[in-house]
Design a protein around this nucleic acid. Structure first.
Lengths: 233, 233
DNA sequence: CAAGCCAAACCTGTCTGACAGGTTGAGGGG
DNA sequence: CCCCTCAACCTGTCAGACAGGTTTGGCTTG
């Protein structure tokens, strides 16, 4: 390979593989050529092709598995999640900034979900909110149900980009949620949060966007207040 | 290395390096151990370390350069941009869905920008809107100024996550913007778009969030209408 | 003593060849 | 017609090698 660009053979190869996917109009699940074939076609060593594959796999553009050929991947929030976590761990992003973004997009999500949710999704959302009540004294379970609640709402919005973004925040939420929970010391404050989730669920199930938006806004107002009280400024 | 996980040595090594960054509290710019040292410490071959490095570099968590040691990277939208493009090219995401998300976050961005923009940013935003008028008949230049306009607004919001997201959409916007522009056949419709940008700029410069939000909402209403007229449903 | 230069040590990029183990598909047996 | 098996194929990992680019510490020079 002639090293068309100036950034090295691996970068060029990543470009060549991406182009291959576009030009051949490959869809998720479709198989890519084997490493050996690609290295022959592009005139690079298998080492280079493998590093290019790893790069694309890191971005979840392709999927690798032992023995099998690489396949085109479905969009997935795993990589974004790691990027966001990295940003937070290196003090480039703080939790409040994440909450502002979440508030912004989740407010829109519930509006869409209230309009577009299927009946099955409505039931699932109501069920998750109810389950949160039942495990109110089990923080780990509560966290998981909370995440599932917001993830399901995103799915009900029928816009995969919202699902992607909510998923991207999941990793860092998992790591910081306990802070917010501990900062709700009184039973009343914890009950309020659970009640708010139920308000959101009911509004979405009832197909009332305005009420859903109001409830979600209230949810985030509480959360941010709790976070600030915990000294996360 | 004992292959602690079940997904292969490379995945384990990625985890080990990420952990190293967190535990040592490395900040952007800090240098990581060399490939040779890591391969010795983790008991894996240099091949494995290199593939792990490539994966982390693909997510812009670290930065590689020939001869130099790998360094911790600053957050960057490049990887997200590729992921979004992949989603669109493989029909997992469509352009309207992107516009809905953009509308949602950019409305919030201008509200924040109106409150938090520096005087220099206000001047820059006004200038970019003015420049758009000047090259109204040069689509390529217009596109670049448009992107710069929205990017600057995101920066003025003082929330790096918004900058990240706006950056993530840049790649796909660049590829689809001409469609929207061609779908504004009349001079009046094009003038309207340029005028709307100026409205946004003026509202942000004036520090008027509500007016900025209204103008941005109008901008997206127009854009989506144009897109739909172009048959992008 | 300070500023600048230089070579050796260090480091990354790429290639080759090898082998273990997982996957697949064609063809044979029931 | 279905299931099984096995050979061909493919990926994961390792070791060693060599061509450049980078760093650094000591040496030279002013």
């Amino acid at each position: 390979m002639e090293q068309v660009g100036s950034s090295g053979l691996v970068v060029d190869t990543i470009g060549a593989i991406s182009r291959h996917i576009r030009e051949k109009d490959l869809m998720p699940g479709d198989r890519l050529p084997s490493e050996a074939i690609l290295s022959k076609e592009l005139n690079v060593s298998r080492t280079v092709v493998r590093e290019a594959f790893r790069s694309l796999a890191a971005m979840r553009i392709i999927e690798l598995a032992t023995g099998k050929r690489a396949t085109v991947a479905q969009i997935d929030h795993g990589a974004m999640s790691l990027m966001i976590e990295h940003g937070v761990h290196t003090d480039q992003i703080n939790i409040q900034q994440i909450y502002d973004v979440r508030r912004t997009i989740e407010t829109r999500i519930v509006a869409l979900a209230a309009i577009r949710r299927s009946d099955a999704e409505a039931a699932e959302i109501l069920s998750l909110a109810a389950q949160m009540l039942e495990c109110a004294d089990n923080p780990a379970a509560l966290l998981e149900h909370d995440l599932a609640f917001h993830t399901t709402l995103a799915r009900a919005s029928r816009n995969p980009v919202y699902s992607l973004l909510i998923g991207a925040f999941q990793g860092i939420i998992r790591q910081t949620w306990p802070i917010g929970w501990k900062s709700r010391p009184t039973q009343a404050s914890r009950d309020l949060m659970l009640a708010t989730h139920q308000d959101i669920a009911r509004a979405v199930a009832a197909g009332d966007p305005q009420q859903a938006v109001d409830a979600m806004a209230q949810h985030f107002d509480e959360s941010v207040r709790a976070l600030l009280a915990a000294g996360m400024s």
